[in-house]
Amino acid sequence: MLHLSAAVDQQSAYDAASYVTLARLAERGGLDFVTLDDTFARPGPDALAVLSRVAPATRRIGLVPTVTTTHTEPFHVQAAVAALDWVSRGRAGWRIDVSATEGEARLFGRRHAAPADALWQEAGEVADVAARLWDSGEEVAGPPGATTGRLVDGGRPHPVDFQGTSFSVRGPSTVPRPPQGHPVRVIDATDGPARRTAARYADVALVRATSAAQAAAVREQLRAAAAEFGRDPDGLRVLAGLLVDLGDGEHAAQRGHGGGGPRPSAQGPVYRGGPVDLAELIATWHGEGVVDGFHLTPAEPLRDLERLVNGTVALLQHRGLFRTFYPGSTLREHLDLARPGNRYALTGERHEP
């Protein structure tokens, strides 16, 4: 199954309407999810808050905001992501990222910037405790079609008592267990320090690669590392990340795989060309088993997303390579990922209140 997603990032856009427009457009194309980036390094709206506003204006598209684990409280992060899953009726994800600069650290004044290895170790611990907290809350009915497993002691919350390298959390969560059990966790695994965390905790790993061979190599590394952590590698989706510029149509296609690239740039791999050649690139890489799909960032948000949906996606649908409708209602169903069982229900573990 081919998976497609898109970024809805916009510079200096603070009105919700523009994000709703982009998300609805992506939903019309049947994309698995949209992402919205967020960082302490530059001004911009809170991604999670924006997509919480987009949620009631959409019906099926997955919503994945970037939420940084550095300088933030893990308990609050997991509760906010769980709330998005409830607001969207099981369509939430969480793009995990870290904050590495001293300038960002000074915004909070609690500690100095840390090396990438330490930050991604902490991010992994936040991902771990978030899953424990999602399991700790009362299990209540989710969206239609969701299978819920109630806690063995009648739904009472469970303390977590998690001790990380830089934080501790007792729990339980103040938000009921999310409709998906665990909202989908997304990590950009291009760089080495993030790759280990992605292999252990991510449901979706993004890989910025300029060639099929490079993407395939990273995918194999991720799957092998996931198996070493005791995970089923088939439970990890690996998507190639591309910046797409469809502005000049097929005329701009450079010689190369799939007509228009991708080519390296300061912003990462860039595809410049037309919707037809982009469809060919996507079909070829996916058909060869290089990746499970693509995460596409439009160079010009509205223009390129329209050409992506009306051109590239329509062609892939016509060839029977991509869905024409959503068979399920949750993001996990779009990605063909199982809903995680509640660890307390599975183990029969009991805690005193």
Rank of each mutant, 00 (worst) to 15 (best):
G44Y: 05
D191E: 14
V184L: 09
G328M: 05
A13S: 13
I61W: 06
V64M: 04
A131V: 14
A130C: 10
A205N: 09
T66W: 14
A49C: 08
A266R: 13
R91G: 07
L239Q: 07
A283I: 05
V50W: 05
A314T: 12
E122P: 03
S329K: 05
H251M: 13
T190A: 09
E349Q: 10
R195C: 01
D97T: 15
V276G: 06
V218D: 11
A213E: 14
V81R: 00
A202T: 10
E280M: 04
A113Y: 10
R156W: 09
S136T: 09
T147P: 02
A345F: 06
V126F: 03
A116C: 04
S52V: 03
H182L: 06
T147Y: 08
E349G: 09
G93V: 09
D97P: 01
F322V: 00
V218C: 10
A92G: 08
E125K: 06
T330R: 06
V54L: 11
E300Q: 15
T190G: 05
D336R: 15
G287P: 08
A57F: 07
L305Y: 01
D245G: 03
F167H: 10
T39A: 13
V152D: 12
S88F: 08
W134H: 03
A338L: 11
R24E: 12
A338W: 00
V186G: 01
L31H: 05
A16Y: 05
G261D: 01
P301K: 03
A123E: 01
T21R: 15
L4Y: 02
G258T: 00
H351W: 09
R42M: 08
H112M: 08
P74M: 04
Q11S: 12
R339V: 14
V77W: 00
A226C: 07
G109Q: 08
A215Q: 09
A225I: 03
H182T: 10
P179N: 08
R185S: 12
G249L: 00
V50A: 03
G348H: 14
L63V: 05
T72Y: 12
E228W: 01
P43R: 11
L243T: 13
A213W: 01
V50E: 01
Y326I: 11
V291Y: 06
Q267W: 14
A224N: 13
D161W: 10
V169Y: 04
E125F: 11
V270H: 07
D248F: 06
D191I: 12
V64G: 09
A23E: 07
P262K: 02
A114R: 14
L151Y: 02
S211K: 09
R319A: 14
E139D: 15
T72C: 11
S12H: 13
T69E: 04
R223S: 11
P233W: 02
Q78W: 01
R231N: 12
P45K: 07
P233I: 04
T66V: 13
Y19E: 04
A283V: 08
T39R: 15
T69P: 00
P179W: 12
P159G: 05
H295F: 14
G287F: 07
P45I: 14
V126G: 05
Y344C: 04
V270R: 15
G93F: 01
M1P: 10
P159C: 04
G293M: 06
